[in-house]
Design a protein around this nucleic acid. Structure first.
Length: 679
DNA sequence: CCTTCGTGAATTTTT
DNA sequence: TTCACGAAGG
């Protein structure tokens, strides 16, 4: 199995609660995978009793494919339950939905759906100017993830609570769950129905959780309940890589694990096998700037390797060009492959310019997540049809359809008003539109008729046709009605191909038919929209998505204050999480890490300028000097004294102009040739 | 009933 | 810059 002594011990210690504190690159995913194999092959544990949980769809798919490579037996593999918290528990909820007053075909609302609903509620209460719908959504999410509903913490007189209650009620009426509901309702299910809990306790006798540092209260409580009978709970985590606190992740879960589970065995994985010594050294240096951390000594036997490189681009475009050229050079002259490279960024929108340049230079790439395709308007339209067809109570999706089909807002408003006044479902009204006294355009009536008869027809066949057939009909219907650009048609085609593959795979692999609701579940909670994983392509993604992955050469881009670290994290306690995020980014690299930053960059059509990220300065001494561009190339981070302005530190330097942060006067740009600076 | 024009927000990260 | 939304005017 090729494991070190501690790893071997971890793999073969099966019973009881176990906490593994694992540094970056110490082989923790490998340990999980070998442990699963050991349980099945050596311990003869029934694979059906194993539950492995991850946080991102990407990590789940990665684990599945790595396991498959070793086990290579689909019959065994399909018995193991592997997936994200959300996907696994939403499947369980579908099975038990009737107990909670839901139908098993419930719709999953993404953030945009939630926003839409919250906006509507605020408008109805006439407080859309008082409360910000996005803040409310975050607050609702926070509420649910912290299980406040179980405690007495809620302040029932606030405006927020009023909105919260309506939101919950509406979701229930529409047979819909948002992402947080999936966890919340699972909690409620296990709390309220002990016999159901027992059923799943007996099924999942062995539970493994990857990236445990990212669990929130709600998730942690589910694991606690599930493992309570057999206590075979195995968690792996690294507090230094905790980067999901915005989703309610609580580091205290990992810190208090051994208090909650008696007789916990604790292991530490500190040897890094992934990266060169230079990279390990720099990442240790970075994380040492954080005050809150569990002491860990990550070390490596690997060679020193190349020093970390840095590139100061003049613009975001030039940054991308530099990266593209670098990749071209290394693939032609140094025999690296495209798939050896990853380009990481802090925010999704940064991918635009990178994609553009890579396309120009004909470098094949694979983008993960992205401004995810489900948020594109036309795709959203398609999926509102699919969601409504699947769940006739889903008025959010129906209203989306109406909004995209009917130009005249007044007409929609009158329909909604009638629905409210007479307490009749909107779908019912549009089906009998001529019976109602509405000022409505004749063409609109015709349109509604066409839509309604289509919906009726297709809903009639809902259980006869598989997901592929249904989606195909909807796409044909949409294309018949509207003139879409070719780009959109291509996207539709891609989605269809994706569905086709999925339906086929399910049939061959598991011998089950895929209906529309199965496909929607897959689309929202399982598909990481990345079929070409193994293809020889450059990977580009956010730092968040890169966790758990590794690449020989990694570019960390946009290392500027206000970008990375993000503006909203500067000057508060969240800066430590940003630093952990940078730590995650840096530790993805096996051989070479290249940090890039741009002097100016486009944001909303405006050129903005930022000073280099503090993270560059924090590891300044470990960065290869020859890559520090220009003639004042070795003065970054240097403490200086200015004849007029006093002492300060050099943040950036472009040819003759240095950006200096003065102790008393703040940030100023100084012409070096004036010779006012004493180094 | 329908078009046009002006204003203001958007982009932190994932399920 | 781009997009959504709403007011105003055709």
């Amino acid at each position: 199995m090729n494991l070190n002594q501690i790893q071997h011990k971890i793999v073969t210690t099966i019973n009881g609660p176990i906490l593994v504190v694992a540094g970056a690159g110490s082989g923790k995913t490998r340990v999980i995978i070998y442990r699963i194999i050991y349980m099945i092959k050596k311990m003869r544990i029934n694979p059906e009793n194993i539950l492995a949980l991850t946080f991102t769809k990407k990590a789940a798919n990665e684990m599945k494919s790595r396991l498959f490579k070793i086990i290579n037996n689909p019959l065994i593999l399909k018995k193991i339950t592997i997936g994200t918290f959300h996907s696994i528990f939403s499947i369980i909820l579908r099975n038990e939905a009737h107990l909670l007053g839901y139908n098993s075909n419930y719709t999953i609302y993404d953030n945009k759906d939630s926003d839409y609903l919250i906006k509507k509620i605020l408008k109805n209460l006439n407080i859309e100017k008082v409360l910000d719908y996005r803040k409310i959504r975050k607050q609702i999410s926070n509420y649910k993830n912290n299980l406040f509903f179980l405690s007495k913490k809620n302040n029932k007189n606030t405006l927020f609570y009023k909105v919260y209650k309506i939101y919950v009620k509406k979701c229930h009426q529409m047979n819909s769950l948002d992402f947080d509901d999936i966890l919340l309702h699972t909690n409620y299910l296990f709390y309220r129905f002990p016999n159901i809990l027992l059923k799943y306790q007996n099924k999942f006798k062995y539970i493994l959780v990857d990236e445990y540092q990212d669990t929130n209260i709600s998730q942690n409580n589910i694991i606690k309940k599930l493992s309570n009978k057999y206590k075979n709970i195995f968690v792996v985590g690294d507090d230094a890589q905790s980067i999901y606190s915005f989703r309610g992740a609580k580091i205290s879960n990992i810190l208090n694990f051994h208090f909650i589970y008696k007789n916990t065995k604790i292991f530490r994985l500190e040897q890094n096998y992934r990266s060169t010594n230079s990279i390990v050294k720099a990442s240790n240096k970075i994380i040492s700037f954080n005050k809150n951390q569990i002491y860990k000594k990550v070390w490596t036997d690997n060679e020193k390797g190349e020093e970390i490189k840095i590139y100061n681009a003049t613009s975001d475009e030039e940054e991308a060009i530099y990266i593209a050229n670098y990749i071209l050079m290394y693939t032609t002259k140094k025999k690296f492959k495209y798939k050896d490279f990853a380009i990481l960024y802090r925010t999704n929108y940064q991918s635009n310019i990178i994609e553009l340049i890579l396309k120009e230079k004909k470098i094949p790439y694979n983008i993960y997540g992205s401004i995810s395709i489900e948020h594109r308007k036309e795709i959203k339209d398609l999926f509102s049809y699919l969601k409504f067809i699947n769940n006739i109570n889903d008025e959010v999706s129906l209203l989306r359809i109406l909004n995209s089909e009917i130009k005249y807002k007044k007409t929609i408003k009158s329909i909604i008003n009638i629905s409210k006044k007479k307490n009749i479902e909107i779908y019912n009204i549009i089906n009998n539109i001529e019976k109602y006294d509405i000022n409505i355009n004749i063409n609109t009536v015709k349109k509604l008729k066409i839509i309604c008869s289509f919906l009726k027809k297709i809903r009639f066949n809902l259980n006869k046709f598989n997901a592929y057939q249904i989606v195909k009909y909807v796409i044909i219907f949409l294309l018949k009605k509207k003139k879409y650009e070719n780009k959109i048609k291509e996207k539709f085609k891609l989605i269809l191909i994706n569905i086709y593959k999925y339906v086929k795979k399910k049939l061959r692999f598991y011998n089950i038919n895929t209906y529309l609701s199965d496909f929607l579940q897959y689309f929202y909670l399982e598909d990481d929209n990345n079929e070409n994983d193994k293809a020889n392509k450059v990977s580009i993604m956010t730092v968040h998505l890169s966790k758990g992955l590794e690449y020989p050469i990694v570019f960390i881009t946009g290392l500027e204050e206000n970008i990375f670290p993000s503006k909203s994290c500067i000057g508060n306690s969240q800066i430590e999480e940003e630093r952990r995020l940078f730590y995650v980014a840096l530790t993805r690299a096996k051989k070479i890490a290249i940090l890039t930053y741009a002097t100016s960059r486009f944001l909303w059509g405006n050129k903005i300028t930022n000073i280099p990220s503090r993270f560059i300065n924090e590891i300044n001494k470990l960065i290869s000097i020859k890559y520090k561009k220009n003639k004042y190339n070795n003065i970054l981070g240097l403490k200086i004294h200015h004849k007029d302005f006093g002492s300060g530190i050099i943040l950036n330097c472009n040819n003759d102009i240095a950006t200096i942060k003065f102790n008393k006067l703040g940030i100023k740009r100084i012409l070096l040739s004036l010779n006012k600076i004493i180094f």
